[in-house]
Design a protein around this nucleic acid. Structure first.
Length: 896
RNA sequence: GCCCAGGUGGCGGAACGGUAGACGCGGGGGACUUAAAAUCCUCUGGGGCAACCCGUGCGGGUUCGAAUCCCGCCCUGGGCACCA
C-alpha cells in the first residue's frame, strides 16, 4: 500500500456496539404497514427461552433470516421481521422445576439474555412487536381461539386412552410421543384412560393433505406430514359371527382383492365384542391375554422385533364372499385406535398375518398369483423358504386365483369389482382411513393457558363468555405437577370455584391448561398486530401481512407445530377471520450445527447401554484429565446442546472476533440446509477477509469520487475517452457480482453469495493495485468508486456493522439499511469476451479468448484452425462439429 | 422394512447436460521483521521432463459431451415404523 495512508487495523470492538446503539436510538428496525410498498414477512420459529441461552447452532437460523430480511428491506419491501417467546408449556416449566425457581421468574430472565444475544449479533428485529405467549395480553387470545374452535364443534372433551408421561406427570399429544417416549424428558409413556380435551384436527385431514401440494416446502417435510396424516383408501365390510345372528363386526382393508384368501380374523384385545364372542373354554386364556396387553407399555407393544402373539376366542366369523367360517383371534398387533380395530387376516398376502399364521399353524391360501413380470421373484422366494409345502408371502400385484367369479382378473381391477360387489350387497363400502388422530390439547400442568370452560352441575359444559377473558392463571408458589392426574390448579379453590355464566349457580372451572403448541399455532398472526387489546388482530393488518413469505426454522417441528398451525389457520379461514388458507407459503429448514463431543471408556463399575459409545465427559472433567486419559477419548460429532457440554456461544465468538465475522462465517461455511461440523479454523478466515476489506476501503477513501456516476456516464458515451480494457472489466465484475447476489440471496444460497462478495473484492483489490500507481486517472477512480460504493451496500445485509461504519467514513448520511441495494445493469454485467473451449471428441484441447459476439461460423473456423486440434485430427476430416454459442466447440472425429 | 436428503482434493464446499475442484480453510516456498504474530507474494487433485494420461461411491446405459439424466447396487445422515 502507498505510504502516507495510515494502515488502520480493523477493530470491531468499538464499532459494533456503537452501531447497535445507533440503530436502537433511530428505531431503525421499526415496521409499519405501508400500502404503497410490496410486503415481505420474514419469520423464524419463535424460541422457548431456555436458561442455556443461544448457541452458534441457533444462530444458523437467525443469521440467514436476518440477512434476507435486511436485503428485502434494501430492495424496497415493507418487511415484517419480528421476534417473540414461546414461553408457555413443558420445556419452560420443566426447566423451571429443575432449577427450583418459578417460571414467572425464570422466563423474564432468560428472555432478557436471549434478547441481549440477538442484539449482540446485529439481528434486525422490531422489538416493539415482541410478544410473550405466557402473558395475559397474549393468552387471552389463545383462549379466544379455543372458544372459536369450541363454537364450531372442533374442541371436545372425551374419555379416552391417552399418553401419560409419568415423569412430566401429564398427558401428551400423539405428536409429542417419540418412539414411545416423552419428547421432553424421554421417559416411557403409558396409556391411561382419562377425560381429556381434544381438537378435531381429523376433520381437516384431507385439506391438510391436499393443500401441501401448493406449498414451497422441502419435499422431505411435506412427505413427513403426508405420512403422519396417513391417508389410505380401502373397503370396510361387515363380518357375521357364526351362530350368533345378533353379533357382527366391521373390518377395514386396503386389499379387498385378497378377501378370498382370508383364513382367520383378528380383533384388537380392547375390542368391545371380545367379551360377547369368547367361548367359555377360551375365556381364561382370552382374559389373561387382554390383561397382559393392557399392561404392556407402548414402546414394547410397538416394537416390530417382538414376536407376534394372540389367542383364539373360540368363535368363528363368516367370510361374506364365500360363506366360509374363519376362526376369530385377538392379537395385540391389531390396534383399537386405527380403522375398526378388527381385520380380516390373509396370511398369503400380508406379512404380519403370515407370521401369525406360521406361528399358530393356520392355513395359508394363495389368491394372488404374480403376473409374468413378477414371476421370477415369486419363484425365488418360494424355493428359498424352508418348507416346500408352505407358500411364500407375496404382497405385490398379480392375477386373482381361487377367488370365485373374480378369478382371472388383475388384482387392481378385482379391487374395484369387489368394492362394487360389497356396496351392492349392502354389507360394505369404500372408505378412507387416516392415521392422524385428534389433537390432545389438555395438560395437567400449571404453566399454560387455562382452558376457558366452566363445569356447571345444571348446565353442563359452559364456555367462558369472551367478555370474561382472560381466565387468569393464578399466581401461586406451588406449581409442581401433582401426579394424581389432576392439574395443580385443581388444588386452588379460589381458581376452581366460580359461578356459571348461564345460570349463575356455583360451578367449577376446568383446571387443565392448554399444551404449549396452542400458543404457537397462531403467533404469526399476532405479530401482525401485537398490541391489539380489542381483538386478536385487526383484519386490515393480517390482510396486509399474511401469509408469511419466508418461514425459517429447524426440521424438528415437521409434524407438530407446522401441522397444528396449518390446522388453526384453516379453521380461522373457514370462520372468516384469517384471510389465508395456509400460513407459511415458503418454508426453509436450516442445517444442524454439530460439535465434537468427548466420550470416555467406562470404568469397571460402569456399564454402557446398547448403542452408547462411552460415558459423556463434562467440560470441567475434560480439563482435569491427564494426557493418557485424553488419549482414550472417543470424539463424536453431535448436535450442539447444553446436555452434551459441547455448546459454543455466539458471545465467545463475538468476543474473540466480531459479530460480522460470526455472521459471514455461518453464511459461508456450507449451504443453508446442510448440517455443519463446527470448527473454529474457518472463522479466522472470515475475520481476515473483513480485515482486508477494512484496509482496502481505508486506502481507497482519499481517492473516492462521489460523482462517479457522472464521470462514468460521460466516459462511456464519448468515443474519444473510452475506459480501457481493465476498467471495463472491473465494471463488468461489479455488475455481474450484483446480479449474482440478487439471484442467490432470495434463493437462500448464502454460501455462494458470500463467495461472490469475496471474488468481487479480490478483483477490486487487484484492480486498485494496478491503477493506484499511475497518476490518478479520473476514469479509473470512478470505476473504483462505483465498486466501493456498491460493495459497501451489498455487504450490509451480511455484515451490517462494518458496512455502516464504512458508509459513514466515506461521508454518507444515514444507515446502509435505508439505502437501496444496488441494482445492476444487464448490459454492463455481460462480459465482452469469453474463453472459447475447444474440444476434440469431448476432451479439452485448446482455449482461446474471443469476443462475446463472435459468430458460430467464426467459432467453428477458429477451432478447426487450432494447431492442437489439427494434431488430433491427423488430416482426417471432422465427422461433426458441435458449436455451443458463448461456450465451446466440440470437434467429433470418427474412429477416435 | 418404507420415505426423504446426500456421497466431488488433506478439509468445508463450487459447477444452466458443456473447461471438474470457484470461494475459503489447512499446508509448502518466499518477502517484511532481531524474532514472533499480523500482513503481503506464490504454489497446492494424482501421475509424467513433456506432449499427455487418470480422476466426482460402485456397475451398466443414453449423449458429440455426464459430477449432473436413466437403470441396478453400496455407503452415510435424517424421519417413520405392526396403520390392516
Amino acid at each position: 500500500m502507498q505510504g502516507g495512508v495510515m494502515q488502520e487495523l480493523y477493530d470491531p470492538k468499538p464499532i459494533e456496539p456503537k452501531w447497535q446503539q445507533r440503530w436502537r436510538e433511530a428505531k431503525l428496525f421499526r415496521t409499519e404497514e405501508d400500502p404503497s410498498k410490496p410486503k415481505c414477512y420474514v419469520l423464524e420459529f419463535f424460541p422457548y427461552p431456555s436458561g442455556d441461552g443461544l448457541s452458534v447452532g441457533h444462530c444458523r437460523n437467525y443469521i440467514p433470516a436476518d440477512t434476507l430480511a435486511r436485503y428485502m428491506r434494501m430492495r424496497g419491501y415493507c418487511v415484517l421481521h419480528p421476534m417473540g417467546w414461546d414461553a408457555f408449556g413443558l420445556p419452560a416449566e420443566n426447566e423451571a422445576i429443575n432449577k427450583g425457581s418459578h417460571p414467572k421468574h425464570t422466563v423474564p430472565r432468560y428472555v432478557a439474555n436471549y434478547k441481549r444475544q440477538m442484539n449482540l449479533i446485529g439481528l434486525s428485529y422490531d422489538w416493539e412487536r415482541e410478544i410473550n405467549s405466557s402473558t395475559p395480553e397474549y393468552y387471552k387470545w389463545t383462549q379466544w381461539w379455543f372458544l372459536q374452535l369450541y363454537k364450531r364443534g372442533l374442541a371436545y372433551r372425551a374419555n379416552a386412552p391417552v399418553n401419560w408421561c409419568p415423569r412430566c406427570r401429564t398427558v401428551l399429544a400423539n405428536e409429542e410421543v417419540e418412539g414411545g417416549k416423552c419428547w421432553r424428558c424421554g421417559a416411557p409413556v403409558h396409556k391411561r384412560d382419562m377425560p381429556q380435551w381434544f381438537f378435531k384436527i381429523t376433520a381437516y385431514a384431507d385439506r391438510l393433505l391436499q393443500d401441501l401440494d401448493e406449498l414451497d416446502w422441502s419435499e422431505g417435510i411435506k412427505q413427513m406430514q403426508r405420512n403422519w396424516i396417513g391417508r389410505s383408501e380401502g373397503v370396510a365390510f361387515e363380518m357375521q359371527v357364526q351362530g350368533r345372528p345378533d353379533l357382527k363386526f366391521q373390518v377395514f382393508t386396503t386389499r379387498i382383492d385378497t378377501v378370498f384368501g382370508m383364513t382367520f380374523a383378528v380383533l384388537a384385545p380392547e375390542h368391545p365384542l371380545v367379551d360377547a364372542i369368547t367361548t367359555p373354554e377360551q375365556r381364561d386364556a382370552v382374559n389373561a391375554y387382554r390383561e397382559q396387553a393392557r399392561r404392556l407399555d407402548e414402546t414394547t407393544r410397538q416394537s416390530t422385533e417382538r414376536e407376534r402373539t394372540g389367542v383364539f376366542t373360540g368363535a368363528y366369523a363368516i367370510n361374506p364372499v364365500n360363506d366360509e367360517p374363519v376362526p376369530i383371534y385377538i392379537a395385540d398387533y391389531v390396534l383399537m385406535t386405527y380403522g375398526t380395530g378388527a381385520i380380516m387376516a390373509v396370511p398369503a398376502h400380508d406379512e404380519r398375518d403370515y407370521d401369525f399364521a406360521r406361528k399358530y399353524g393356520l392355513p395359508i391360501k394363495v389368491v394372488i398369483a404374480p403376473s409374468d413380470a413378477n414371476e421370477s421373484r415369486f419363484n425365488d422366494e418360494g424355493s428359498s423358504s424352508e418348507g416346500a409345502s408352505v407358500p411364500p408371502c407375496y404382497t405385490g400385484d398379480g392375477v386373482m386365483v381361487n377367488s370365485g367369479a373374480f378369478s382371472g382378473l388383475s388384482n387392481r381391477e378385482g379391487m374395484e369389482r369387489l368394492a362394487e360387489w360389497f356396496e351392492a350387497q349392502g354389507i360394505g363400502q369404500r372408505q378412507v382411513q387416516y392415521r392422524l388422530r385428534d389433537w390432545l390439547i389438555s395438560r395437567q400442568r400449571y404453566w399454560g393457558a387455562p382452558i376457558p370452560i366452566i363445569h356447571c352441575p345444571h348446565c353442563g359444559e359452559v364456555p367462558v363468555p369472551e367478555a370474561q377473558l382472560p381466565v387468569l392463571l393464578p399466581d401461586v408458589e406451588q406449581y409442581q405437577p401433582s401426579g394424581t392426574g389432576e392439574s395443580p390448579l385443581a388444588a386452588i379453590p379460589e381458581f376452581v370455584n366460580t359461578t356459571c355464566p348461564q345460570c349463575g349457580q356455583p360451578a367449577q372451572r376446568e383446571t387443565d391448561t392448554m399444551g404449549g403448541f396452542a400458543c404457537s399455532s397462531w403467533y404469526f398472526l399476532r405479530f401482525c398486530d401485537p398490541h391489539n387489546d380489542r381483538e386478536p388482530f385487526s383484519q386490515e393488518k393480517v390482510r396486509y401481512w399474511m401469509p408469511v413469505d419466508y418461514y425459517v426454522g429447524g426440521a424438528e417441528h415437521a409434524v407438530m407445530h407446522l401441522l397444528y398451525a396449518r390446522f388453526w389457520t384453516k379453521v380461522g379461514y373457514d370462520a372468516g377471520f384469517v384471510p389465508v388458507k395456509e400460513p407459511f407459503y415458503r418454508l426453509r429448514n436450516q442445517g444442524m450445527v454439530l460439535a465434537l463431543t468427548p466420550y470416555r471408556p467406562p470404568r469397571p463399575d460402569e456399564t454402557l447401554r446398547e448403542g452408547e459409545t462411552g460415558i459423556l465427559v463434562r467440560r470441567d472433567q475434560l480439563e482435569s484429565m491427564s494426557d493418557a486419559e485424553k488419549a482414550q477419548l472417543t470424539w463424536v460429532w453431535e448436535k450442539m446442546s447444553k446436555s452434551k457440554y459441547n455448546v459454543v456461544t455466539p458471545d465467545e465468538i463475538v468476543e474473540r472476533y466480531s459479530a460480522d465475522t460470526l455472521r459471514l462465517y455461518e453464511l459461508f461455511v456450507a449451504p443453508f440446509d446442510t448440517a455443519i461440523e463446527w470448527k473454529e479454523e474457518g472463522v479466522k478466515g472470515m475475520y481476515r477477509f473483513l480485515g482486508r476489506v477494512w484496509r482496502l476501503m481505508g486506502a481507497i477513501r482519499p481517492c473516492f469520487v462521489r460523482d462517479w456516476r457522472v464521470i462514468l456516464n460521460e466516459s462511456c458515451q464519448s468515443p474519444e475517452c473510452p475506459l480501457d480494457e481493465s476498467a471495463r472489466k472491473m465494471r463488468q465484475r461489479t455488475h455481474a457480482s450484483l446480479k449474482k447476489l440478487h439471484q442467490d440471496i432470495p434463493d437462500f444460497k448464502f454460501n455462494t453469495a458470500v463467495a461472490t462478495l469475496m471474488e468481487w473484492f479480490n478483483d477490486l483489490e487487484a484492480y486498485w493495485k494496478r491503477v493506484n500507481h499511475s497518476p490518478c486517472c479520473a476514469d479509473a477512480m470512478a470505476v473504483v468508486s462505483e465498486a466501493v460504493e456498491c460493495f459497501i451496500l451489498a455487504l450490509s445485509p451480511f455484515a451490517p456493522h462494518i458496512a455502516d461504519e464504512l458508509w459513514e467514513q466515506y461521508g454518507f448520511e444515514g444507515f446502509t439499511l435505508q439505502q437501496r441495494f444496488p441494482d445492476y445493469d444487464e448490459a454492463l454485467a455481460r462480459a465482452e469476451a469469453f474463453e472459447l473451449v475447444i474440444q476434440v471428441n469431448g476432451k479439452v484441447r485448446d482455449k482461446l479468448i474471443v469476443p462475446a459476439d463472435i459468430s458460430r461460423e467464426a467459432m467453428e473456423r477458429l477451432a478447426l484452425e487450432s494447431p492442437r486440434v489439427q494434431a488430433h485430427l491427423q488430416g482426417k476430416p471432422p465427422r461433426k462439429v458441435i458449436v455451443v454459442p458463448g461456450k465451446l466447440v466440440n470437434v467429433v472425429v470418427s474412429g477416435g
